[in-house]
């Protein structure tokens, strides 16, 4: 298990990666309330794919374990990817 603060830093690492491909005005803020997926989010479908895969790779780097997050049911209603904070909590709750 990873603590929530470490999980949030991991998500921030993924934000650094996807922000390079976003215009300055649309870049994701490194804050728990930042919306990632769904209404109000700044990422288009390519951005979401890049972000989720970036999170998977950050997770693997941090824990040495693989995680599969890119799935339809991960991105719909109630998705843990809704905000930075919800994603950090989801990651922190996962066994490494």
């Amino acid at each position: 298990m990873m603590d929530e603060e470490a999980a949030r830093r991991l998500v921030y690492g993924a934000i650094d990666i996807v922000n390079r491909q976003l215009p300055a005005a649309k870049r994701l803020q490194k804050a728990p309330e930042t919306i990632i997926v769904g209404e109000g989010g700044a990422l288009d479908s390519l951005g979401v794919v890049n972000f989720v895969i970036a999170v998977e790779e950050e997770f693997a780097d941090a824990t040495g374990a693989a995680v599969q997050l890119l799935a339809e049911n991960m991105l719909g209603d109630g998705s843990p990817f809704r905000t930075v904070g919800s994603l950090a909590r989801y990651i922190a709750a996962r066994p490494a």
Binding site: R20, Q21, P23, N50
Partner: peptide, 8 residues
Amino acid sequence: PLARELAN
């Protein structure tokens, strides 16, 4: 992705 990286 390359076009976005360059432009942004």
